[in-house]
């Protein structure tokens, strides 16, 4: 019988992420970037479709305007806002390297802006779902 080594950490500890803020900022930047790229593929094709087959585009628009579509729209906005704010943080640190000393603080500020801008935007986009 093969003996497996005993796990040296509790399950809860394994679930916690220990990469730190810089690593998380990088991971979120990459994930949001790929998501936006995928949407750009869809979005340029749908706008192209609007000029080639307008009826089909208008059908697609009803999917975009559905409750699920609005949730997706909100997630897209969140990805875009995070990527934009963190991108600005990267640019600042690239051209003023001393700011890397405060990269955690700048990330924290970018989250404050994210929430302050993102919540009202999410409210406006999602409002029609409950008939607002």
């Amino acid at each position: 019988m093969v003996r497996l080594p005993r796990p040296d950490q509790s399950a809860l500890l394994k679930l916690t992420y220990r990469g730190g803020e810089g690593m998380l900022a990088w991971a979120f930047h990459r994930i949001s970037g790929i998501a936006i790229w995928a949407f750009i593929l869809l979005h340029v094709l749908d706008i192209w479709l609007s000029q080639v087959n307008s009826a089909l585009y208008d059908d697609l628009l009803t999917i975009y305007a559905s409750p699920a579509g609005r949730v997706g729209e909100t997630l897209l906005g969140a990805a875009l806002l995070y990527h934009a704010l963190n991108g600005l943080r990267i640019i600042l640190m690239d051209f003023w390297p001393r700011l890397t000393l405060y990269h955690k603080q700048i990330w924290f500020v970018s989250w404050i802006v994210f929430v302050a801008v993102g919540l009202p935007v999410a409210y406006v986009i999602l409002k029609p779902i409950w008939g607002g």
């Binding site: 305007a65 875009l80 935007v121 406006v124």
Partner: peptide
């Protein structure tokens, strides 16, 4: 990236917040 910070965010603001994509039909575009 800097260009898109201005362009893409204003585009999203105009098309998704100040107006609703649901009304932006092919004909409207």
């Amino acid at each position: 990236g800097l260009g898109l910070f201005v362009f893409a965010l204003s585009h999203f603001l105009i098309t998704h917040v100040l107006s609703d994509p649901a009304n932006q039909t092919s004909e409207w575009i």
